[in-house]
Amino acid sequence: MIANILDGIVLGLQFGLLAAGLTLVYGLGGVLNLAYGQMAVISAIVITLALSAGVPVLLAVALGLFVGGLAGLILDLTILRPVYRLRGEPRVLLSLLLTLGVSFIIDGFLNWRYPLETLSLRIPGEAVEILGVPMRRGSLIASAITLVTFAALFGFFRYTSLGRAVRSVIQDQEGARLVGIYPHRMLRLILVLSGVLAGLVAVTRSMVTPVDAQSGLSITVFALIVTVVGGLGNVAGALLAGIILGIVSVIAANLIGTYISLIILLAAAALTILIRPAGLLGVKE
């Protein structure tokens, strides 16, 4: 049981990190980015190519994160422009359609050009025992990176004036404009941040499972599920939902079978919408 829970937490941290970038962009800008998983894959392939060109690991990772952020910026400057002209439901729908299109294009391109590149950052060394359970080093390092990332995100939002300005747009966009904050600039910043987070997802995930040109869709799907359960626009909710879903999914996989865990996750998301439409930590409007 302890082993299940620990594995669940490891997976859950992954889930939480997956959702963070997606949920922020949605909460801030009403943009549902279905090309999110592909942004992660782009980073993964950039890192793979850099590594095979002999670039040292840390530098390759930095390059991957940079390209992830660049992908976010490009989305903001191009395909999302028409989306920004709309409000409310049409805005979400158009963003969903356009980014889905982008995800197909990226998928097609990557599968054609880089069908075999696979990012798999193996961390060598013995398993480490935690509470009597042997844990793979890769899982532990991935979890540590995720925790540090979340701590940095929380610190940014709570203690910096820029982070406060971003939160103000999430809470009341008109109020933010009335105190002189440019919502579009905040959104651009967050899109870049979400691209970097997508890159980080590729890095931490590849320490546990290989990431290749086909991984995009599943990353987006998991991110969506966790985002729904955690509450749109809520980073703390994403972390909490990620951990809960991670534990549930590992236990379900072990008790019943791996095939069931995705169904259970979807059911959890559906149930959340029924019971708490604003998500676990959501506040009613």
Binding site: L162, R164, R167, D172, G175, L178, V179, G180, I181, V283
Partner: peptide, 23 residues
Amino acid sequence: AAERHLFPQMTVHENLLLGANPY
């Protein structure tokens, strides 16, 4: 505005901070 448009999940202090030059 009549609807005030405060930032509901922020403290009074944070709301005031944002009122000044936000940065």
